[in-house]
Amino acid sequence: MNDLITFEDFNKVDLRVGTIIEVHDFPQARKPSYQLIIDFGALGIRKTSAQITTLYRKEDLLKKQIIAVVNFPEKQIANFMSECLVLGAVFGKDVILLNPEIRIKNGSSVN
């Protein structure tokens, strides 16, 4: 287990639901990745990259709802600026995206 954090620390993390609206190959990334364009409703459109190419095909990701951290500063990954962090569970060497069980409004807060 990692270091313990306070409830106040956790409250600083802004977790939101978004829908993937575009998926692109990302050959410039060090490890196989996709570039994702995600609609977070009133928060707007954000982009990120994700190393999820072994379990997900591009066409399966379109319209998929995911959960992401939206209040990280932008981070450059190769020639691409990532604006959020999609959450997933580690499964061996792969990542399984976390997502709501039922479709909900983009931008919904995760508590």
Rank of each mutant, 00 (worst) to 15 (best):
M1D: 00
M1G: 02
N2T: 02
D3L: 00
L4G: 03
I5T: 09
T6V: 06
T6W: 00
F7T: 06
F7I: 15
D9Q: 11
D9N: 14
N11W: 05
N11E: 13
K12A: 07
K12Q: 12
K12S: 03
V13K: 07
V17E: 00
G18P: 07
G18T: 04
G18E: 05
I21H: 12
I21L: 07
E22I: 06
E22T: 06
D25Q: 13
D25T: 15
D25S: 12
F26N: 04
Q28R: 13
A29L: 04
R30T: 15
K31S: 09
Y34G: 02
Y34L: 10
Q35Y: 02
L36S: 02
I37L: 12
I38Q: 09
I38H: 10
I38F: 11
I38L: 07
D39I: 04
D39A: 10
F40A: 01
F40K: 00
G41I: 15
G41Y: 09
A42C: 11
L43A: 15
L43H: 13
R46S: 12
K47R: 15
T48E: 05
T48M: 05
S49G: 04
S49T: 15
A50M: 07
A50V: 03
L55A: 09
K58M: 14
K58Y: 08
D60M: 04
D60H: 13
K63W: 07
K63A: 11
K63T: 06
K64N: 03
Q65V: 06
I66A: 08
A68F: 05
V69F: 07
V70K: 00
N71F: 14
E74Y: 06
E74W: 07
Q76R: 13
I77F: 02
A78L: 09
N79C: 02
N79E: 12
F80H: 07
M81A: 10
S82T: 05
E83V: 01
C84E: 14
L85H: 02
V86T: 13
L87D: 00
G88W: 04
A89Q: 04
F91Y: 13
F91K: 15
G92E: 10
D94E: 12
D94N: 15
V95N: 01
I96P: 00
I96T: 08
I96D: 00
L97E: 00
R103P: 03
R103V: 03
K105H: 10
S109H: 14
S109V: 15
N111I: 04
